[in-house]
Nucleic acid binder design. Structure first.
Lengths: 141, 141
DNA sequence: TTCTTTCGCAACTCTTTAAGTTACGAACGG
DNA sequence: CCGTTCGTAACTTAAAGAGTTGCGAAAGAA
């Protein structure tokens, strides 16, 4: 898998689930399809579970499924569930000796926060159902 | 220095130059002030030179200075000069076997591009001069 | 000319972060 | 009670950025 791909993995998996809501999938199946590892899948989907987007069941015939209808899950829900910021926020806890630097950081962070909000807003206009619902090729494979 | 701090370094340096336009600064001086290394400074400022924001002179009494007035350099100019995207773009050149994944990536990339444009737009509303021009503390140190 | 300063750049190491892997316990169904 | 599947910790591997070293080129000073 490639770098910083947790969002891709999460969205990809949810989109597939949106197409076949009834079925539970194991982390092995998901990992195979996504070309990665069951543990990585559980790690990522675990965050979605904590956010109430997925449910997981242990043991025989266990696995993962959507916790609510796919049209009620937006890309923003998923993005926020992962708690990672695409708009790079340097968790900048250092004290700046320099006044210019403080002023600068303040201005930049202000802008980044605005942009982050824009991102979430844009992501919230698309649901998982819309993504999953587009597979003319998939049927023939 | 901390991670992905090229933009910080660039903006910080330019802001200081904006306060004292006449003076050329060596990469050593700049590195000392920024708490980093002259080579790192030259690496970053080199990009700004290529973008026409700075000039550099080699040899005795050489160094760096602004290539144009600080009020004609916006944060967006600097951001674009560095050619790095804060809105994480996975340079995703893989072919996706899966139609859902293709559709998904298309939608996400579309949104990220919009957000990137928003970021540049917001950055372009502030100039280096405005950042540099704010140092009540600096004078007393 | 020769020396010193300073940038330009390549090549390397160090550090950090994320992905991948192994392992094992807990839960649950058959 | 046995096999399946998640939950999680701990470790290894891979990639990227920052830091470092070294040296050649350019340019002014002596």
């Amino acid at each position: 898998m490639k770098r910083n791909s947790r969002l891709s993995l999460a969205l990809h998996t949810l989109s597939h689930m949106a197409q076949d809501t009834g079925r539970t999938q194991t982390s092995s199946e998901i990992a195979d399809h996504a070309g990665t590892n069951p543990v990585v899948v559980r790690r990522v989907l675990g965050k979605l579970r904590k956010a109430g987007l997925l449910t997981s069941v242990r043991g025989h015939s266990g696995g993962w499924r959507l916790a609510r209808p796919s049209h009620e899950i937006t890309l923003a829900d998923v993005y926020l569930a992962l708690e990672e910021s695409l708009v790079a926020t340097r968790a900048d806890t250092e004290v700046h000796a320099c006044q210019v630097e403080r002023h600068l950081e303040g201005r930049v962070i202000e802008i980044l926060n605005e942009v982050e909000a824009t991102l979430v807003d844009r992501l919230s206009t698309t649901t998982i159902a819309e993504i999953g619902d587009c597979q003319p090729l998939e049927k023939t494979l």
